[in-house]
Each structure stands twice: as structure tokens, then as C-alpha cells.
Amino acid sequence: MAEWVEACAAEDIDEEDVVRFDHAGRTYAIYRSPDDEFFVTDGLCTHEKVHLADGLVMDDIIECPKHNGRFNYKTGEAKGAPVCVNLKTYPARVEDGRVMVELD
């Protein structure tokens, strides 16, 4: 069942940046976009299981730190070689300065 989980404080993430969030044995990546919206995806790159939170956020794109696989973190779309499998995304919202994410 999906449930809303408190992940972190909004101020814990810089604009155009990403942090790692672990919950119930799984790992996620939480993003703050340049226009101050929050997004959540699975935490590991679909190419080689590397933590995306060590990667670089530029505009709508998260780039894997290992081999530069790129995803649109808003939609999860894989943007080309070496990644060809999309990332799963999850809903997020901010409540009283806290980032809430809806996980499966």
C-alpha cells in the first residue's frame, strides 16, 4: 500500500540538487528543481545500481556519477546511452517545511 512518509526538511536540499533518502530497506533520491519544486525517484541508476544522489543535477536532469547516464528526474525518462531503462518516480509535496513522499 502506498503511504506518505516524511523524508527530510525542505531546507536540507539546495536548489538544483539531490539528496539520498533510505526507507524500509529501499533507497530513493529526492530532488529540488531550480524552480523550487520537489521530486522523488528510485535511488539507484538503472544501468549499474549506483546512488544517483552522488550525481549532478542540471535543470531537469540527474546525471549518474559513474557513467553519466542521464534521466529526467521529473518523469523518470532515460535520456540515452548508456541508460535505456526509465527510473521509477514517486509523488512528493512539502508540508510545513517538510518534504513528504508517497512510497509504494
Binding site: V50, D54, G55, L56, E63, P65, K66
Partner: peptide, 11 residues
């Protein structure tokens, strides 16, 4: 260790 230098190298 790990991917500690990745982001700064990319920038």
C-alpha cells in the same frame, strides 16, 4: 572512496 569526487569532476 565511492563516488566522492564524481560531481566535482563533472563540473
Amino acid at each position: 572512496p565511492g563516488n566522492a569526487v564524481a560531481r566535482d569532476i563533472r563540473l
